[in-house]
Design a protein around this nucleic acid. Structure first.
Lengths: 191, 191
DNA sequence: GTCTATATAGCGATAGAC
DNA sequence: GTCTATCGCTATATAGAC
């Protein structure tokens, strides 16, 4: 029992260490030996929890995804139901903790290759998020908060593209460019 | 003399082969042995032309950059001086030849890591392109083709972000999403 | 300028003791 | 559940013949 609990704690610690490593160097840019060393564990000790490197990657991504859903829900409740406000709040929270956007930006591009272990995951995620955002915009359009002649599917693609694009700029500029300004200008143009 | 010419031809052939490989798998996802094999040359033969793998990468990037400048100039002359039209024509030509956007999308994200051999190159390129596009928008604003209250620097960041973002969507969707529609909607909102 | 052969290091993963 | 030791493979790069 006690060893099970310690095992879970250590597993969680490995995930958080790997998250930072994958965010820094991508999946192919870091070795399991390096992650094990940074986590203060032996390489077979790591392999005990995650049989392959790809298993570790997917565990990290699921961890990110769960945290990401927390962030968007926090943003929604903090912005009194305004979807545009929630998206801007989400961008602001990403600025405060760049690890997430780093992980996401690096892995999404890396996973463009069909042979990448997270390829299917990212393809499915982009489909799902695009549909979710389009639904939200349709609702706002129904309430008259978005101009009627705009296509919600195109707006969803624009918002996702703007998010990803400014995140890349932010990372390449070493955090010197803000995420919020270009996104706010886009969302304002929808009203 | 004849051997020099044959050497240049083979060097060019290696660059084009490596371009496709780096575009497919990124810098870290492909080995010099694989590239040499695909180019029909031995690995030391490849190393003779490009002493290190990083040298090969930079040669590929410079090749891409030269072609990219050709494309944007073709787009400018084909669109009768309209900058927005040229950007849309560029997006259209990228759809016709996905290798370029694949190379650029994969390598830009990979090079976010300061240890990546193309890191400085991409940082400098993003700075330069942002300044160039902002200048163009300032000119159009002076001619009354863009609304006066918009900030050219923000518009430049938006256009670059939208380009990069829809390219990522295009690649993850296996070419099923077009590049032009979200970009056109953005550019239309500037007038 | 291109080859065969090889050096040297690091990779992901496994075997078996404790 | 974690360790030491090691396997089998691939990586980038070099030496030296032609």
């Amino acid at each position: 029992m006690r060893s099970n609990r310690r095992g879970r704690v250590r597993r969680q610690h490995v995930i958080e260490t790997a998250l930072r490593s994958f965010a820094e160097h991508g999946y192919r840019g870091v070795s399991t030996a390096t992650i094990a060393q940074e986590a203060g564990i032996s390489e077979p000790g790591l392999i005990h929890h995650f049989p392959t490197k790809a298993d570790l990657l997917l565990a990290v991504i699921e961890h990110y995804e769960a945290r990401s859903i927390e962030l968007i829900q926090e943003a929604l409740s903090a912005s009194d139901g305004s979807y545009s406000g929630a998206l801007l709040a989400l961008a602001g929270s990403h600025e405060a903790d760049p690890t997430f956007i780093r992980l996401f930006t690096v892995l999404a591009a890396e996973s463009v290759s069909p042979a990448h272990p997270a390829h299917e995951w990212f393809v499915a995620r982009y489909d799902r998020v695009r549909a979710e955002i389009a639904d939200r915009f349709r609702e706002e359009q129904g309430r008259g908060q978005i101009r009627g002649e705009l296509d919600p599917e195109t707006l969803a693609r624009q918002v996702i593209a703007m998010f990803d694009g400014v995140q890349l700029q932010y990372l390449l500029a070493g955090g010197q460019l803000d995420l919020v300004t270009p996104l706010r200008a886009l969302l304002d143009s929808y009203r």
